[in-house]
Design a protein around this nucleic acid. Sequence first.
DNA 1: AGTTTCATTTGACCCGGATCAAGTAAATCC
DNA 2: GGATTTACTTGATCCGGGTCAAATGAAACT
Lengths: 263, 263
Amino acid sequence: MNTPALTTLTAVPEGKVISFESIRVACRNCTLMTLCLPLGLAPEDVERLDSIVRRNRPLHRGDFLFQSGDRFRSLFVVKTGSVKTFAQSPEGGEQVLGFHLPGEIIGLDAIDKDAHVCSAKVLETSAVCELPFGRLEELSVTIPSLQHQMYRLLSKEIAHETEMLLLLGKKSAEDRLATFLLSLSQRFRKRGLSPTDFYLSMSRHEIGNYLGLAVETVSRLFTRFHEEGLLKVDRKHIQLTNLDAIEAMVIRAPVEEFRRRIS
Amino acid sequence: MNTPALTTLTAVPEGKVISFESIRVACRNCTLMTLCLPLGLAPEDVERLDSIVRRNRPLHRGDFLFQSGDRFRSLFVVKTGSVKTFAQSPEGGEQVLGFHLPGEIIGLDAIDKDAHVCSAKVLETSAVCELPFGRLEELSVTIPSLQHQMYRLLSKEIAHETEMLLLLGKKSAEDRLATFLLSLSQRFRKRGLSPTDFYLSMSRHEIGNYLGLAVETVSRLFTRFHEEGLLKVDRKHIQLTNLDAIEAMVIRAPVEEFRRRIS
DNA sequence: AGTTTCATTTGACCCGGATCAAGTAAATCC
DNA sequence: GGATTTACTTGATCCGGGTCAAATGAAACT
């Protein structure tokens, strides 16, 4: 048997039932082990970690993991499906902060203030592991390799946000969308899924919000990329037909700087 | 005696000598203790932390703490002066990631890859504490409150970058500069310095780069803010003559969203 | 099946801020 | 002290992408 919940990452239609078994798997049997918190832990330590993990029933589109202002109790790891995080201003304006795929950890920004500073909403039927942070912290006192892994994860998150800053600070709309698609592609690949053929679980509006672009711009860019033969779009189904060109697009981005410097 | 090196945060002219004594102070006597790593530690633990801190000679404008690609060995804490961090593309283009004031920790993004992913350059004569990360990690295994403080610091850094994402993702040039000035003001206040009267240690070019704006735009905005009576500018000397207005400017930023929602 | 609702696409227009181009003022160098 | 370099300011122009408006298409509702 394979693991249907993982391979149908974003393909589970609304309301369909996910195999409950695939959600209850222990860390040691989880296909995400090398992407997740247990990375680098000795088997017996994985068991100890496993013992504090709460595996709740699957969540559905629109469900919240937590909302901004909630007391911080747990970190969450996406197991199947996807989750978006976003900040909201009192008036209702919202800024999408990230889209989270299986193995990615959510809530790290809440440790400092002991309260959530953003909200997390499930984009499609998803299974999520809950890690009560108090227990995790106790555990990491007695497992140095877990502490190290925690530092690494927090650091990785910082480095990742830094990359987003680079993206939003300088690049053109075209670069932003190309970078976004490439990021998804690479993350799908790491999870054993097709890097060139996938479904988007988020709307154009959410993509635009995330990238600091208007919906219309996102839509136009998809059309243009399609016309240029970079990809095929059908609604939420994306096929990257020229991944190399998309990569090249992202890499040669800082050229304007270069041109300025040599002149 | 007061601590001249702190009170002259950005006012030490190039080449002038900083009191060496003020640099060598132990953590327990450091005015930054409540802003820095020792926060929340028992006195004996502060001593243990103190014992691994390396206090090097002051650095001067243009000196590097580290460069992108360097092996990661230590975290750094600004003690006096200021430091900028930036990412650079191979061609020479650069994106300023942050300006760091006394008590702020630099290098947290390097833990994951065990290599620096950005560079840190001193903006003015500055004293910096070096924290060898291996030692720090060992220590944090035996001092749970230090481990907790590390988690908090890492988390705070994530939350801070999230705020920058919000800024760069949505807001107008005006909002960006206002937010930047307000951030500086608040950070100076926390350090016991004037929140309304300070020197900028970074150039207009660096501010623009940081905020995703052209130098010319930054310059024009300073002129406009001056005309509107929000501040006085003389070269690098800034006086915020209407802090309330600047705060209001930042807070009422998401109004466009609101307008859209009710229509 | 037909209606409502919401998401996406497409077109027309406009504006904020980038870019280009001087000019001015400090700081650094002889 | 004068020359050179670098930083900053100001003005003119242009364009990428936002905004507005409308059409089209999917999906949910009755």
